[in-house]
Design a protein around this nucleic acid. Structure first.
Lengths: 113, 113
DNA sequence: GCATTAAATAACCGAGAGGTTAGATAACCA
DNA sequence: TGGTTATCTAACCTCTCGGTTATTTAATGC
């Protein structure tokens, strides 16, 4: 079982249904029923997805009569970008190639051939 | 079984061992043996992690005698940031609160600022 | 040819993910 | 009170994940 925050966030995001739910919630709160609507999937299945999202801190749930409206909590997304940003300098291959080229030069250093 | 690129990337990142491997690879290529070193884990276990990372397009592998050096391929990280960036405006709670407040105003009397 | 080293594969295991159906909870409404 | 609606829980199933050990493949060096 994965316990750290970042792993939980990534695991929660590694499912198209859950990402679709999050996308829907950017347009405002929604009930479980409303969130289920677009999917050919039982209620309990959606319920489980919501629990995963909740445990990851990506949504929170209120209580309004018999509805349990879900709200987007995008704070963990911040850590996601911060993580990925660390790799920005490697996105462009040319960066990486230049880098390894410079490294090679440095390692050889003229003393060893 | 998850098939789409983004799901595969997120799934690959949802493991601390795999993230540590990627972090190590930002310092340059490494063999499987070198990558295994920091972990109390068998070779095959690392091998499996590497395969997951390779399938996600996060690393590539060369061939040099009996070594199979791994290289970071950070391109998928770009999609990760692009995804998370969509949620930037929701990171700060106050944004969300202001937003829903304005929405409420708009719904009630049809005027905005 | 033979021993050594690096890495992958095979077979297995336990736990967890993602889905199902059926039943329980809880709030509304007549 | 009882019925309807929204949601969760329980129990179950199958498949994947992350790990193991044992074996195999492939390249090196003597």
């Amino acid at each position: 079982m994965v316990t750290d925050q970042l792993s939980m966030t990534f695991a929660a995001l590694a499912d198209p249904t859950r990402r679709a739910i999050l996308a829907r919630l950017t347009r405002g709160e929604a009930t479980v029923k409303e969130l289920s609507a677009p999917f050919a999937m039982s209620g309990p299945a959606i319920s489980k997805h919501l629990r995963v999202l909740e445990h990851a801190g990506l949504i929170s749930r209120g209580r309004e009569a018999q509805w349990r409206p879900c709200r987007l909590e995008a704070a963990p997304m911040r850590e996601v970008t911060e993580f990925a940003e660390q790799y920005r300098r490697f996105w462009d291959e040319s960066y990486a190639r230049l880098d390894s080229y410079l490294q090679t030069l440095q390692q050889k250093d003229g003393t060893d051939d």
